[in-house]
């Protein structure tokens, strides 16, 4: 039996909810409560919009445009923790340092790296790469040797190609022994731009 009472119950007030604001408030509160395992935000760089992912341990991923952000968020939910939220203010430190780097006023990054996405030999390769200074270059073979396997330069190339934190771990500073640029995750134009910014190539 549908009576007057039941009809009135179906006419509940909907209430207004600002979803954007709710997301922002929750991200803020979650960060303060230490419940955010992965936070991310966008950084507008001269090389296009980058996505910065940080964990309480440090920078875990920095990605060029092209790969859908949702896919990366999914991947990090699976590999690091499902407590992932957009929380741009958590990435402010990294974004400020990127600003200074692109403005030419910073030559090294002072952000801890969360290395959890990189295992084994690739980890050794990227840690060796992180030691190449601003304005310097290295070769795939040298980096392989630094990582402990001089002959594994192809594997070193693969590790550099899947660097989860380009720019900050400067895989753009690794070139072919013969002087060729080699490859780059973000495309060769971006590699040229970064090398020019650092004074290795002519602008």
């Amino acid at each position: 039996m549908t009576d007057d009472l039941e009809r009135r119950l179906t006419e509940a007030p909907a209430g207004d909810l600002d979803l954007e604001r709710l997301r922002a408030t929750l991200a803020e509160r979650a960060g303060e409560a230490g419940l955010l395992d992965v936070a991310y935000g966008t950084y507008d760089s001269p090389l296009g919009p980058l996505t910065v992912f940080v964990t309480p341990r440090g920078l875990v991923r920095l990605s060029y445009p092209g790969e859908p952000v949702e896919a990366q968020v999914d991947e990090l939910a699976a590999t690091i923790s499902p407590r992932v939220m957009a929380a741009p203010t958590r990435t402010d430190d990294v974004r400020r340092q990127l600003d200074a780097y692109f403005a030419g006023s910073r030559t090294s990054f002072d952000v801890p790296i969360d290395w959890r996405l990189v295992r084994g030999f690739a980890n050794a390769v990227l840690r060796a790469t992180a030691r190449i200074p601003f304005g310097g270059i290295s070769t795939y073979r040298e980096i392989a040797a630094e990582a402990g396997s001089p002959n594994a330069y192809r594997a070193a190339g693969n590790a550099l190609g899947s660097n989860p934190v380009p720019i900050v771990v400067p895989c753009h500073r690794v070139l072919h022994a013969g002087g060729g640029l080699g490859g780059y995750t973000g495309g060769l134009d971006r590699k040229r731009y970064l090398l020019a910014l650092e004074g290795v190539l002519e602008a």
Binding site: P13, G15, L17, L19, D74, A77, P82, V84, M85
Partner: peptide
């Protein structure tokens, strides 16, 4: 694996809010 937490907010917040408006009133719901 569990989906990223923020997708839960996107998928369910509006409906949960409606539930809470009915249960506790519009002032307390949010």
């Amino acid at each position: 694996h569990l989906p990223p937490f923020e997708t839960l907010i996107d998928a369910h917040a509006t409906e949960l809010h409606r539930f809470l408006v009915a249960r506790v009133g519009p002032t307390e719901a949010e």
